[in-house]
Design a protein around this nucleic acid. Structure first.
Length: 558
RNA sequence: GCACCCAUAGCUCAGCUGGAUAGAGCAACGGACUUCUAAUCCGUAGGCCGCAGGUUCGAAUCCUGCUGGGUGUACCA
């Protein structure tokens, strides 16, 4: 929030410089305001002078020395002197800003007034965004990989909501096709097996225990009435119902709710698949070869064309994927975010080529491909095989670590990185476990405020408190961190990068724990106590808001 | 073979549209509990940012090539 004010000041000075003929417009939107890494370089720094200098040269205007530009800028900034304690020109032409301490202290009343809404944009941006994630077909319980995706998708959705978007969460699935047929056959085989009848388990069948459970339910409901039924439909339908129920229960445990479930089937029923083919054909982007229908993806930069309808007449997966995305476009979203596992990378270029071919702006789709999760136990990787159903489900992991730990761990790495989930660390209730580190910070703050209250030293009205007493360097650092929270949320939303929030919270908790060990909140000095209690309120609000933004709880005691 | 992702401290990883002297946690070593919760804190040590070029005032960050790992490359999804 302070950074934003500074940016506005600089923008004004930049414009003023243009009016005074000091430089041209060439550097607009190219310069940066950032927080310097090193002590002595101020609270903020800008490279504006160097960027102006560089752009002038590039634009063929006369080259101006960056340090000279910096001096001119500093002069212009004099009009905003109330913000700054000092402004320095350093190095090749950086301008370092040392803010007036009162600027930092002034954030506390704002935080306390905003409470739970601190960090959320105050106005909606009137943009609709669709986030598609999980999208697992109902063939079995959610695996760890789905878990990462579920948490990632939901948290990205929360971030976008915090940034003012109107967000819809959508789950796309397919209950037709070969996989589901095999699932039905698997259930049928287990059903017969449980009835002690001869059964042939399909070669590539689903071997998980849950298939027995589903078969058992069928027996409980219908006895052996289905023993001579060769059609797999009733088995398949039973399986789908049971598995979806299971998946939803798991998502519920994670606190994840979808606004819509879109069944691929709809695309067929409404003729949307055929329509896509017809439109592509009309544009000359489709041809027949070897009894199959091909889409000219080479026209879109790929190195080979792709089959969209097999010689059997069945579409390949890319055709409904394209049709589905076209439906998203038709619904008029400003932005569509797809979250897929890295194994789905092959469909991405096809889908984007498809929507582009149909006349839509494919840049409105952002695909997040997340890498896989490896589970570590006792320092060794836990081997998993989906086919043999020898994998750990999200449900089992939840039993072991709980929702807060699971969400936090799944968000600790950026999507691009493979994620190592250390079960030993996750189950440890100690300082090494970052989840507890952050939550403990929140609980400690709550405890301080409780204690003060018990002693009749409630924080009182913030307007009566002299925040100018918060002069310790640790206090200033905490205030700075708090002030940076809203911008961080916006940036994380823009970049679809929830891990930034995770890192921020660890850092903020660290600042607090460190401060706690050095200074006392509650002391004999009543005025100082009041000021520090406001600080603890502000800290608690930001820590709590951050945790909730990640879908976690913020405990008041631990 | 081709496409995408990754490569930063012993380990796990940050590093925001290129910025100034490279960051955190863990592990190692040494310290702090009559105190508002020690589930905490303080200190020490640890690096040709995979390799080689290029772009420029300036590169861990952008481009090219190479090496090593992951994923995909089907008329499977």
């Amino acid at each position: 929030m302070i950074k934003k004010r500074l940016q506005e000041c600089l923008e004004q000075c930049f414009n003023q410089g243009i009016r005074q003929g000091l430089w041209s417009d060439a550097a607009r939107n190219s310069y940066a305001v950032e927080i310097p890494k090193h002590e002595g370089q101020g609270d903020y720094a800008t490279n504006m002078a160097m960027v102006i200098s560089g752009r002038e040269k590039k634009a063929g205007n006369k080259k101006i020395n960056p340090r000279q530009i910096a001096e001119q800028l500093v002069e212009l900034l004099d009009a905003h002197s109330e913000l700054f304690a000092e402004i320095k020109i350093a190095g090749p032409g950086f301008i370092n800003f040392f803010m007036n301490p009162a600027v930092w202290q002034a954030v506390l009343p704002i935080v306390c007034a905003a409470g739970e809404s601190f960090g959320l944009v105050s106005e909606k941006n009137n943009k609709r965004v669709l986030v598609e994630f999980v999208s697992a077909n109902p063939t079995g319980p959610l695996s760890i990989g789905h878990g990462r995706q579920a948490v990632l998708g939901d948290t990205i959705s929360r971030l976008l909501e915090a940034a003012g978007y109107e967000v819809e969460r959508e789950y796309y699935y397919n209950d037709a096709g070969r996989q589901m047929r095999v699932l039905g056959e698997s259930v049928r085989a287990r059903y017969l097996e449980l009835l002690d009848l001869p059964a042939q388990f399909p070669e590539d069948g689903y071997q998980g225990e849950y298939i027995y459970d589903i078969a058992g339910e069928l027996i409980a409901e219908q006895g052996d009435k289905l023993k001579d039924v060769t059609d797999v439909t009733p088995f398949k339908e039973q399986a789908e119902r049971a598995i979806f129920k299971d998946i939803n229960a798991t998502l519920e445990r994670l606190g994840i709710h979808f606004d819509r479930y879109y069944n691929e089937h709809t695309l067929y029923e409404e003729g949307l698949i055929d329509d896509v083919v017809a439109r592509l054909r009309a544009k000359g982007l489709v041809y027949e070869k070897d009894n199959a229908v091909w889409f000219k993806t080479t026209e879109f930069g790929q190195n080979q064309d792709r089959v969209i309808i097999k010689s059997s007449g069945e579409p390949t997966y890319r055709l409904p994927d394209i049709a589905y995305h076209r439906e998203k476009f038709k619904r008029g979203y400003d932005w569509m975010v797809d979250i897929f596992g890295a194994d789905h990378i092959a469909t991405v270029p096809d889908v984007l080529a498809g929507v582009k071919a149909l006349g839509y702006d494919e840049t409105r789709v952002t695909v997040i491909l997340h890498q896989f999760v490896t589970l570590m136990r006792d320092g060794k990787q836990v081997k998993m095989s989906t086919r043999k159903a020898n994998f750990i489900t999200v449900d089992e992991l939840l039993d072991e670590v709980g929702q807060d730990v699971m969400r936090f761990f799944f968000l600790m790495r950026k999507a691009d990185s493979q994620l190592e989930f250390d079960l030993d660390l996750a189950t440890e209730q100690s300082k090494d476990n970052p989840v507890f580190y952050v939550q403990y910070g929140h609980a400690r703050l709550a405890s301080i405020l409780r204690k003060a209250d018990e002693q009749g030293q409630g924080p009182g009205k913030i307007s009566d408190v002299d925040l100018g007493l918060l002069t310790q360097p640790e206090e200033e650092n905490i205030l700075k961190a708090i002030a940076g929270y809203p911008a961080l949320v916006q940036q994380a939303a823009h970049d679809l990068a929830p891990h930034r929030i995770v890192f921020y919270l660890q850092e903020l908790a660290g600042l607090f724990h460190s401060y706690y060990n050095k200074h006392r909140f509650i002391s004999e000095d009543r005025k100082l106590t009041m000021a520090r209690l406001q600080l603890s309120r502000g800290l608690r609000i930001v820590l709590g808001n951050g945790l909730r933004l990640l879908g976690m709880t913020a405990p008041d005691s631990m």
